[in-house]
């Protein structure tokens, strides 16, 4: 290209003169950045892998029927976690019977019925957002002051369960509201157009449509409560319990038992702690896996 043609096509000449082949844009900065991103992502994955490996290595030799069948004991050879496992299951049942319905009812009210422009509704919403981020130990203080000492309930299983329930409320409310919000308005309008009341529509159309999302959030909330340690330390779960607990007896739960075993000096108890962790993780990963599976299974693109 020369002469008149060159002046005739400034742009085209420039474009054609230089190859379109890749050159400069893979800059050093871009490469360093990509390394940073990959490294960041790997840290989380590797940490989980190493964690699970360490727990299995330490705990598998101690994972035997004794651990599941026996009560805690000062003798590592005889020590088991049975009362703690039973207490954890009981707490889960109490949560399902108390905190879950309250949380779901709150979510339904806020999402379907509440006058959203009122200041007190906004206050409730802000309050829930904030409660979700309050340290769990603060809930422990609440339990200590009101349930254990104030009400004179003492360090019993019910007190622990109620505290975990209060702590679980905001998480479940928030996820249940998201599930309800995902149900399109056409479902509501369709029901209303047939003459159903708002309550009927919510009960028969909206809630069933939101059940998978609500269940997922509820299970994740439950599994967090089952794994919780700190607030229960405050309400007296850290006692030595060798019998099967009842609602109004003293109790210990798996995370607390693990915590106590970690603190003991004998190496065998470290191994027992790791074995109990395997039991705890097996329960939690089963629950979470089920929740994640259900979310993916029923995730509807409306």
């Amino acid at each position: 290209m020369n002469g008149p043609t060159r002046t005739a096509s400034v742009h085209a000449t420039r474009a054609v003169e230089r190859s379109l082949a890749g050159r400069r844009h893979r800059s050093l900065a871009a490469s360093v950045f990509l390394v940073y991103l990959l490294f960041s992502t790997l840290v989380g994955l590797v940490a989980l892998f190493v964690l699970l490996f360490t727990i299995l290595r330490d705990g598998l030799p101690y994972l035997d029927p004794t651990l599941l069948a026996n009560a805690p004991s000062a003798n590592p050879a005889l020590a088991g976690a049975r009362p703690a496992i039973i207490a954890s299951v009981m707490i889960a049942l109490v949560l399902i019977a108390t905190a879950l319905p309250i949380a779901i009812a709150t979510a339904v009210y806020l999402e379907e019925f509440a006058p959203k422009d009122r200041w007190w509704i906004r206050l409730i919403e802000l309050n829930i957002q904030n409660l979700a981020a309050i340290p769990s130990i603060i809930f422990g203080i609440l339990g200590l002051a009101f349930l254990v000492r104030g009400l004179g309930l003492g360090p019993v299983l019910l007190a622990g369960a109620l505290i975990l329930g209060l702590q679980m409320l905001p998480t479940v409310i928030i996820s249940a509201r998201e599930a309800l919000r995902a149900v399109p308005d056409s479902v509501r309008q369709g029901g209303m157009a047939l003459g159903a009341t708002r309550l009927q529509v919510v009960w028969r159309e909206v809630l069933p449509a939101a059940i998978p999302g609500i269940a997922t959030g509820s299970i994740l909330g439950l599994s967090r409560a089952i794994g919780e340690t700190a607030p229960l330390l405050m309400v007296g779960a850290a006692t030595f319990v060798s019998y099967n607990p009842g609602l109004l007896t003293q109790y210990t739960v798996l995370p607390i038992l693990i915590y106590q075993w970690i603190k003991l000096p004998q190496a065998d108890f470290q191994g027992l702690a790791a074995a109990a962790i395997i039991v705890l993780l097996a329960i939690l990963i089963t629950m979470n896996g089920f929740a994640i599976w259900m979310r993916n299974r029923y995730e509807r693109k409306w």
Partner: peptide, 20 residues
Amino acid sequence: LYHDEDLYGPQIDAIEVRKR
């Protein structure tokens, strides 16, 4: 082909393409 160069050729850099 863009000015006789295949936009989807193996050597072509999509970023150079979008620049032009």
